[in-house]
């Protein structure tokens, strides 16, 4: 049976993880390669590495890092952050990325999705959508959630699918950082609307939140960052818990 996926997300700047990550058994928690291996050993099903570098120089470091990650990691990983042109993608694939995640560039030029899926295949392309509820409408934001757009979550997600996206990574900005649970309502609707997998992001605080995102929200995968990084929820114990609650999970 296909299992639900647990995906830690790592923010990278200039080749280093940025959030204050503390694990006693890691010598250098700022090293994304070591941290990736650690999460893989804990049972993470995939990893996402998000490049939040500001400068071109830092971005070059990222491609080198992707190569190091691929060399050491035996689970799938997605890289994203700042991918805006076709020429950004080849080096990441060549470096060993399993998938890439695009966001603002797809909103700006939706045909970019078609181009990428034609060149690299649907399975390689994740479209990340950040949205927030405004006047009862889920509105899509870009540029790290700073710019509102004309696009609405559901129609945009559907369009991404028809243009060839292999997965949708949906982040509810209303829930992100609150640790009060995932946005299950829009997830239910996304699941009904789409025939491609949906990754839920934003709001994870407790193990119960993951149970809800799978049972109520019907998500195919759940992504979280700080609760894993700060050790508030351990991946191993989370997966045990989900299995005890009859969620299909890889343990």
């Amino acid at each position: 049976m296909l299992t639900k996926r647990i995906i830690p997300c790592l923010d990278i700047k200039a080749g280093r993880t940025v959030k204050g990550i503390h694990f006693e058994n890691l010598r250098d928690a700022g090293d994304p390669v070591q941290l990736g291996e650690y999460y893989a050993s804990q049972g993470a099903d995939e990893l996402v590495f998000l490049d939040i570098s500001a400068t071109q120089e830092e971005r070059k470091t990222f491609a080198v890092l992707v190569n190091e990650i691929a060399r050491h990691l035996n689970i799938p990983f997605t890289v994203g952050g700042g991918i805006s042109e076709l020429k950004d993608v080849g080096p990441l694939l060549e470096a060993g990325a399993d998938k890439i995640s695009i966001n603002s560039a797809a909103v700006k030029d939706p045909a970019f999705i078609d181009k990428l899926t034609k060149e690299f295949g649907s399975q390689f392309i994740v479209v990340a959508i950040d949205a927030r509820k405004i006047n009862n409408q889920w509105t899509v934001f870009t540029h790290g959630g700073t710019r509102a757009t004309e696009k609405k979550l559901f129609s945009w997600a559907k369009e991404c699918q028809s243009r060839g996206a292999g997965e949708i990574l949906f982040t509810s900005m209303d829930h992100d950082g609150t640790k009060k649970g995932f946005a299950t309502d829009p997830l239910v609707k996304l699941n009904q609307l789409l025939s491609i997998p949906v990754i839920a992001s934003g709001g994870a605080g407790r193990m119960e939140d993951f149970l809800e995102v799978f049972t109520i929200g019907k998500a195919d995968a759940a992504l979280a960052a700080s609760i894993f990084h700060f050790g508030e929820v351990g991946i191993h114990e989370l997966k045990q818990y989900l299995q005890e609650h009859q969620i299909p999970i890889r343990t």
């Binding site: 296909l2 639900k4 491609i196 997998p197």
Partner: peptide, 14 residues
Amino acid sequence: PAGNIKIPHMGWNN
């Protein structure tokens, strides 16, 4: 076949 399953089949299966 389209229907009750998501396509692609993506993830861990036993």
